[in-house]
């Protein structure tokens, strides 16, 4: 297993390198440059030239790429061209923990609601509880974040006034270990609506998958055997059926994770959360090349780790799967 993990990590190095090269090339291929505007005014030609020289942008692109990769090896993602007093490392350090909190909370919500809902639906197959939860699940899958977010704000923030409509109740300076926020009422009240917005679609798709896969598993012979042994129904479901039925759920956690990142972007914009999301789009429109590279690489590394985690979880859930 360790060998497999190492091999997978090694295989990902060329992938990440190609991602870096492609992103680098594509972002430089965009028309316009990072110093075309300072605020609303356009910069004089001579100033632009000097700035370009300062950031080595007049060098051939392969030299720039080589320089970038050398800096990357040292963990230096370079300066931001737009936020001139910040480095890309600073920006990621400030914004990523917030997006990460939002993502983890929604994933937790998705699993906590999705798996039990799927189990309940499957155990009450073709009864009203099944129909109800299936309908709620398909509705949850169908409603896009850009609709659910404003809808929740309108009901719970504007009409009922239960939760604040915007912002994230954490000062990034007071995080434990760099990403765990203090869990006070301020945090939870701000986190509630964005987390529900992002977690609904997750829990809905997890519930649908859990239901479908559990329905298949309960018809297997070994479940009949377990029942024939006289095991209580609860043991049969929890110990024998559930673990196997979670395999397809684990499979989609990788793609779902990518979806969470997309989602955080929209949810952060709707709720005015100062996370990483806005830099994904803004850095590209600003031609802020180092930030584009930084966000792209961070996202790719996360994606790679998520897929690796999925494969490891497979082997744990199904001992028949062996990687050598």
């Amino acid at each position: 297993m360790t060998k497999y993990i190492i091999r997978r990590l090694l295989w990902n190095i060329p992938v990440l390198f190609l991602i870096a090269a492609t992103t680098f090339g594509l972002s430089r291929a965009l028309p316009g440059g990072p110093f075309d505007f300072a605020g609303d005014r356009s910069l004089p030609e001579s100033v632009r030239e000097n700035l370009k020289r300062k950031y080595n942008l007049d060098a051939p692109i392969y030299v720039q790429f080589a320089d970038y990769m050398m800096d990357l090896m040292r963990g230096d993602l370079g300066p931001s061209f737009r936020y001139r007093n910040q480095t890309v490392n600073d920006i990621l350090k400030q914004t990523f923990p917030i997006s990460f909190q939002l993502g983890i909370l929604s994933l937790a919500l998705g699993l906590l609601i999705g798996i039990p809902a799927g189990i309940i639906a499957a155990l009450n197959h073709n009864q009203w509880l099944d129909y109800l939860s299936s309908f709620v699940a398909i509705l949850g899958v169908s409603i896009p974040n850009i609709v659910l977010g404003p809808f929740l704000i309108w009901i719970f923030a504007v009409k009922l006034g239960w939760f604040p409509a915007a912002q994230w109740g954490v000062d990034y300076t007071e995080l434990y270990f760099g990403f765990i926020p203090p869990m006070n009422s301020d945090f939870w009240s701000h986190a509630a609506l964005p987390t529900i917005t992002l977690g609904t679609a997750l829990s809905a798709s997890i519930a649908r998958l859990t239901r479908a896969s559990l329905l298949q598993v309960i018809r297997e012979d070994y479940i009949r055997t377990a029942r024939a042994k006289g095991l209580p129904e609860r043991t049969v479901i929890i110990v024998h059926a559930l673990k196997n039925s979670l395999i397809p759920v684990v499979t989609i956690l990788g793609p779902l994770f990518a979806g969470v990142v997309t989602g955080t972007f929209v949810v952060e914009q709707i709720f005015g959360i100062p996370g990483l999301g806005r830099h994904f789009v803004q850095s590209v429109t600003n031609r802020d090349y180092p930030v584009v590279m930084g966000t792209a690489l961070l996202y790719s590394v996360l994606l790679v780790l998520a897929n690796l985690f999925v494969d490891i979880a497979y082997a744990w859930l199904d001992p028949r799967i062996r990687y050598d």
Partner: peptide, 21 residues
């Protein structure tokens, strides 16, 4: 290989490129 690519970022880059063009 392509599955590991962050397509969201490429879509954004592509769209910005096309729009600017």
């Amino acid at each position: 290989f392509l599955y590991g690519f962050p397509f969201l970022i490429f879509v954004i880059l592509m769209q910005v490129f096309f729009k600017a063009q």
